[in-house]
Amino acid sequence: MPRILRRERLVPNIHLLEVEAPEVARKALPGQFVIVMPDDRGERIPLTIADWDRDRGTVTSVFMAVGTTTRKLALIEPGETIPIFAGPLGLPSETGRAGTVLCAGGCFGIAAIHPLVRAFKASGNRVIVLVDVKADYLLYWRDRLAALADEFVVSSRDGLYGGTEFVPRHVREIIERETVDRVVAVGCTYFMSSVSEATRPAGIKTTVSLNPIMVDGTGMCGACRVTVDGQTKFACVDGPDFDGHKVDWAELYARRRSYFDDEIKSLCAWEEERFP
């Protein structure tokens, strides 16, 4: 079973997991994800791959502790094993030469854009990284991303990093200031839809990494279906990357909220069992 090598709280509620998974590490490409299950009674959830080390055979993911599965993961200690860490799944992102690329990440997406930034840079693009945090103390991987990027911008509701507004204003500022050829956004649904709306008027190609509920992650169940350009797509095998201007965001919001009540029930049951 996959062994956890590192589990670390990066900032409140956001954790890093480094897992011994040589086969996943060998094949991982930017934009792909893994399916993770924390224990034998757990749920299977997708996590975007944030980094890998083919020599050491490790894969890193960053996640936010919100529901039962992610809270369980947040309590795992190095040396423990988890039953499932399967992948790499999904189609890799397109990271070829485009010119100037804006990579926007929010929340767990700050880590998830890391392989994209690296790959876009390696393809010879000018890469602007824009990360969005609710508050200054929630920023992580600043040095890591800033070192890769040609320009590093923080959007925060606090003032420390210069901005006080949500991400669309920063996107608009950047695309008004200079020619941006491509935008990629990874983060929560609201974040990705906001970035997409900000680039829509200028018609800049904007790719989002969708995060619907999944079960198997291999195209078998169809839980992750999303509507893109009027067509039903399975995010796990047709994506997870899609054109942000063509995604039916309202449907995605609703589908992601499918089990809202059950998620609370599950969390309560688990807390009672785990912390009696």
């Binding site: 079960v215 169940c221 169809g222 499918s258 998620e263």
Partner: peptide
């Protein structure tokens, strides 16, 4: 929401044991 493929519905219940929710985490 509430429209499933049979694959998803049965996978949730059989493989993931949703019939024993919340003892099992999958709803």
């Amino acid at each position: 929401v509430g429209v499933y493929s049979a694959n998803e519905y049965l996978t949730r219940v059989n493989l993931m044991r949703a019939y024993d929710f919340p003892r099992y985490d999958t709803p």
